[in-house]
Amino acid sequence: MTVTDQRVEPTPVKELARRTLADREGALAWLFLLPSVVYIIALVAIPFGLAIAFAFSDVSAGDPSFDWAGMVNFARAFDDPVFWRSLGNTFVFTGVSMVFIVLLGKVLANILVADFRGKWVVRFLVLLPWTTPVALSSISWLWLLDSIYSPIDWVLRAVGLLGKGENMVWLGEPGLAMTSVIAVHVWRLVPLAAVILMAGLVAIPRDIDEAAKVDGAGYWRRMLEITIPLVAPVIAVSALFGAIFTFTDMAVVRVLTRGGPNDATQVLSSWAFYRGIDGGDVAGGAAVALFLFPLLLAVAVGILRVVRRIEVD
């Protein structure tokens, strides 16, 4: 999040050296950038263009030839109630997850920067949800949320919140299924947010905090007036990562519910995959997936604006 750029007035000698190096520096800059730029154009920009083209075509798995179809795919998507449902779910999924990821991430970061014995083990255990491939950890959760054998239900029965033989059916009821999907997703991304926020906490100069302590500021006062404003840019970065990972993620949904029950947990990306790959309707899937970009762009620009405003203050 570097915006400010302190430039020191170069001394005349350096100025001279810089000038003689200037043309070579230009060539070097190009040489350095070329591989990345070529790669990104070839494998992101062109496929992105292709995806837009697909959205206006009638390409399908069975008939890969490209024919112009105009707005048909969009019209079909807009007519489909599942599309609107997915769009709404995507926002709920992203919004709720982001809030919890940042809040719990902050709590976790505060715990992890404290000094205690066995910190190494605790850090290792805390990292697990983020470093484990999401498909595998989601499968573990699939059993934890099983309709009959769920250990969570067993605990609820043991403490008497559920009657004998009763089950919650976590993934079978629309509201509960959405809650479960969000919970698993939050669980997975909280460690990442915590690690990013730890970087922010570690960077706070000790003397500021200690000066405030000497002046008699209590824990909460210091937290609210020193720590949080100082780590605000880092909080925004973790929110941004959280938003991007959540908005575009379909692994948790795919493994846990496949969008069900009755598309109650369907999000845009899982719906696009379902239509484009499973259903073979490449054009239809592309039209749905295309909606991800402007929405994501809006979220990212919004967050970066906030960061900039904080930094200017």
Partner: peptide
């Protein structure tokens, strides 16, 4: 260009997989 590369990060796999499978 820096902003451009950041924008690339916002084009997610869920948008690209259909055309990339062609590639």
């Amino acid at each position: 260009l820096g902003i451009g590369i950041f924008l690339v990060y916002l084009i997610p796999p869920s948008l690209l997989f259909l055309s990339l499978s062609r590639v």
